[in-house]
Design a protein around this nucleic acid. Sequence first.
DNA 1: CTAATTGCAGACAAAGTTGTCTTAATTAAA
DNA 2: TTTAATTAAGACAACTTTGTCTGCAATTAG
Lengths: 145, 145
Amino acid sequence: MIFSKRCLHALRAVLYLGTQPPERDFIPIREISKKLDIPFHFLTKILKDLADKGFIESSRGAAGGIRLAKPTAELNVKEIIESIEGEDYFSGCILGFSKCDSDNPCALHDRWVAIKEEIQKMLGEEHLEVLSTRIQEQGLRLLEM
Amino acid sequence: MIFSKRCLHALRAVLYLGTQPPERDFIPIREISKKLDIPFHFLTKILKDLADKGFIESSRGAAGGIRLAKPTAELNVKEIIESIEGEDYFSGCILGFSKCDSDNPCALHDRWVAIKEEIQKMLGEEHLEVLSTRIQEQGLRLLEM
DNA sequence: CTAATTGCAGACAAAGTTGTCTTAATTAAA
DNA sequence: TTTAATTAAGACAACTTTGTCTGCAATTAG
Ligand code: SF4
Ligand code: SF4
């Protein structure tokens, strides 16, 4: 499994938000927790992170909850993953080195850069709007079967 | 960073073995540990795993150490990574689900499958033999700079 | 045989990730 | 204004990963 639990929970939660009918405003975290079977308090922390990073907004109190902070067309899978796993998750060195002279690359570098660019390109194209459409057409599996 | 420390250590160690002159037989783990700055006992455990999985062979005692168990042409980066991170590391579900009906895929599936196949193809082509040649030509960076 | 050298095994510790619980702060509605 | 609903905050626990330490087992050299 490539992504951490934090990341998987975050992805599924955001996808859940993206598939809610537009007339719904704030969605309680408890609802997401139950529907997606994610530990409530853990999910709360994860979503607080996403809120701090500007992906979602929250409101306390009755009728409170969370909602996407941007239109779905401006949210893609790549930036959500990177905000959780780290900005260099798809762009760092394959050997885990932090400082490296890419002008004088090692034997693995070129191949690795090609993979990374492919991943980033593909995930970057996946905005929630496109996904929402496809989810309406095909359904989205958000729970273990 | 996509890979665990275990995996990075294993990769670097195997690459180190692959770049040793052929007249060297068993290489002491201590040497690898020092040269690559990897904790000795941790590395020992990791390499024991690789030995159990048939990638390397070991010999105790004076003049002992480890060596690759197969010709470099038959060892590629993909199988080493998968042996450590798990066989489904590049083939599992993007949402982390274990059981899923791929005949009736969700909205993310097709794109994800394309990425995974690309990764597996590229990493599967990287056998140590090719790398060794390139390493002789270009050098391989095995240490943080 | 003895001694030196090496990998092997397992207990343990440190650090990071994942998850639980309790309490406080905030908001809307009765 | 009270009450119920909800996020926020932080302490803590369970688990996993990463790393350390000590001693044992096997091999070679002398
Ligand atoms: S040149 Fe090699 S070591 Fe440096 S960033 Fe690229 S893959 Fe990593
Ligand atoms: S169909 Fe969706 S949930 Fe199922 S394996 Fe593919 S990506 Fe995962």
